[in-house]
Amino acid sequence: MENLKRILPPLTSILAFEAAARLGSFSEAARELNVTREAVSRQIRTLEAHLGLSLFERTANGTELRSWGRRYYETISTSLGNIAVASHAVRGDTGAVTLPADPMDLPDDLPVVLIVDDAPENIRRLYEVLRGQYEVIAQTRPEEALAWLLNGGHPDLIMLDVRMTGMDGYALCRRIKTEPDLARVPVMFLTSLDSTDDETEGFAAGACDYIARPFVPAILLARLRVQIDLRQTTAALEDLLKRRGDRLERMDELLIQFRRQIDALDP
């Protein structure tokens, strides 16, 4: 433990660096952490002194993360994310966890992906693949994921593990598909179970895709994109048909009114 204490930098300096690297600004990091910019700068200098290298390029126009600073950020952000998800599970908190965004500014209308997996390391791995392209909501308990959905949560896609404590992925998928407001949300299984019987049961439960671990990130992203594009296209067609149906209904009502007026004119 003494060796660990000597090797580890202060936690406050790590948090200050993580915020500054993620947000791209010492001032924004200070605002998020509710401290002064000078305090953030001081903590980062402490971390740099501990590491023996400069993490940021400081210029007259501001600061820019160096290449090794970027690698260090990616390492500690993953670890902090794992700690956050694990702490959420240990505390038994209810509700969904929104994992941190990518350090760059992201659009407000990113598709939302709900991940349900009782292994925090699996969630973190998926988050690293999806971040920047999707807003990720994570749940470590199937029952809490279902409660979140029933209370108004409406993701664009749901990714489920199969083997989980309590309700398994198959049961959760079947339950989701019984809800009219959720039945058309695509559900994908991502699991270590790779037998034909397991895959067949997944599709029988209502899944649109079944992917076995270990997965190839590029292929996973492609298959996920296909399902979201398909759902968005289907939703757009449904909306178009509904609007045309409403228009036809109004035309029918006008025709009935015209007929009544014509009938009233007859001697």
Rank of each mutant, 00 (worst) to 15 (best):
R163Y: 09
R163S: 12
R163M: 14
R163K: 14
M164E: 07
M164T: 04
T165R: 15
T165M: 15
T165F: 11
G166D: 12
G166A: 14
M167V: 06
D168V: 06
D168W: 05
D168C: 08
D168L: 07
G169N: 04
G169F: 05
G169H: 05
Y170S: 01
Y170R: 00
A171F: 10
L172R: 03
C173G: 12
C173Q: 12
C173D: 05
R174C: 13
I176K: 04
I176T: 04
I176C: 08
T178M: 13
E179C: 10
P180M: 08
P180S: 11
D181Y: 05
L182R: 00
A183Q: 10
A183W: 02
R184C: 08
V185Y: 05
P186N: 10
V187I: 10
V187C: 07
M188E: 00
F189R: 04
L190K: 03
T191W: 00
T191C: 06
S192D: 06
S192V: 10
S195T: 15
S195M: 06
T196A: 07
D197W: 05
E199A: 14
E199P: 05
T200C: 02
E201H: 12
E201L: 07
E201I: 02
G202Y: 05
G202T: 02
G202W: 04
F203L: 15
F203R: 14
A205H: 00
G206L: 03
G206I: 06
C208P: 01
D209C: 04
D209H: 06
D209A: 10
Y210G: 02
Y210P: 02
I211N: 01
I211V: 13
I211E: 05
A212S: 12
A212N: 00
P214T: 08
P214F: 01
P214N: 13
F215D: 02
V216H: 10
V216R: 11
P217M: 09
A218C: 08
I219W: 11
I219N: 12
L220Q: 07
L220H: 09
L221A: 12
R223L: 10
R225H: 15
V226N: 13
V226T: 15
V226F: 12
V226D: 13
Q227A: 13
I228N: 02
D229P: 00
L230V: 10
L230S: 13
R231I: 03
R231V: 00
R231D: 14
R231S: 15
Q232W: 03
Q232G: 09
Q232P: 02
T233S: 14
T234R: 14
T234K: 11
A235G: 02
A235Y: 01
A236Y: 03
A236C: 03
A236R: 08
L237S: 07
E238V: 06
D239A: 13
D239V: 05
L240V: 05
L240I: 12
L240N: 11
L241R: 13
K242D: 09
